[in-house]
Design a protein around this nucleic acid. Structure first.
Lengths: 143, 143
DNA sequence: CAACATCTGCTTGTATACGAACAAATCTGC
DNA sequence: GCAGATTTGTTCGTATACAAGCAGATGTTG
């Protein structure tokens, strides 16, 4: 028979969704770093969430920015070291550390916002407007 | 005038492509860890590339798996500690460390391959077949 | 052949990212 | 009101991820 030989495995790493999600994220992080001064994407996410919601406990802030408690601790600490954020004890619940933007944090976010939007534009520059809409919808459905 | 008041900034972190790329990647990494025993997605990517290409220098292996030289060093070291990979000096070029699968590495990849495909299935479970095709195409265009 | 540039792999430093274990504070059920 | 469960924040260990700088090997060009 002609088909007796086992064909070689056609597994192609470059076509795997997981691998390409990782690469897409790497690319966006690099573009973000190029556009936004002094803030990583995760640090920017924390500022954005505080801008949206106001003061939040550290753990809740982590949940709203997709970071576990060990990760958000480091991010808040680095933002605190830059003076963009301050934290204080909650009077009603002694466990909570309320995190909030400082004046410098608000100013930094306003500057970074335009830069982050420019980064987003470069990230999707190879897609048409229709493709961007479609990609955003599929990405949201995937999460 | 009715519109004299400045409207509050409508910036929504949860709708940003960069933030959602990070979350999609986080989700896939978690699903991958649930399905695949003893290998991270990056470690699996290294095994897959060696399976595809055969022995490669460490730096070239890094380029073909989207890791810089500092990152690939650690990944190879951990795979070497598990006995899945070995490295040897290239006779023609004293700079190169040729990395290749061991027998155990080949066996581990064959087992992990099915698990990785199951992880991929769960990652895209909320998309229809047509949406999966569309998403893969847009993701490839984005990178 | 000698000066120069490039490539390879390594190290350090910084920044996510998460699991696991822990103590203190709070809440819940009885 | 009190024992048990939960929540919060911390620490430790492990694993990417990348910039910058380094030394040794190789390639290139005059």
């Amino acid at each position: 028979m002609a088909n007796e030989m086992k064909k070689p495995d056609p597994y192609q790493l470059s076509q795997q969704i997981g691998y390409n999600l990782r690469r897409a994220n790497q690319r966006h992080v690099a573009i973000f770093a190029k556009h936004v001064d002094g803030l990583t994407p995760t640090q920017f996410a924390v500022l954005a969430r505080l801008w949206e919601c106001g003061a939040l406990s550290q753990n809740k802030l982590g949940r709203l920015t997709a970071m576990d408690s060990a990760t958000i601790k480091g991010v808040v600490e680095r933002l605190r070291a830059k003076g963009l954020v301050h934290s204080s004890a909650d009077q009603n619940d002694q466990r909570l550390r309320l995190v909030d933007l400082t004046q410098a944090g608000r100013a930094a976010f306003e500057i970074a916002l335009d830069q982050a939007l420019a980064a987003r534009t470069e990230t999707v520059e190879r897609l048409t407007p229709d493709e961007i809409v479609a990609f955003e919808a599929l990405l949201a459905k995937l999460i």
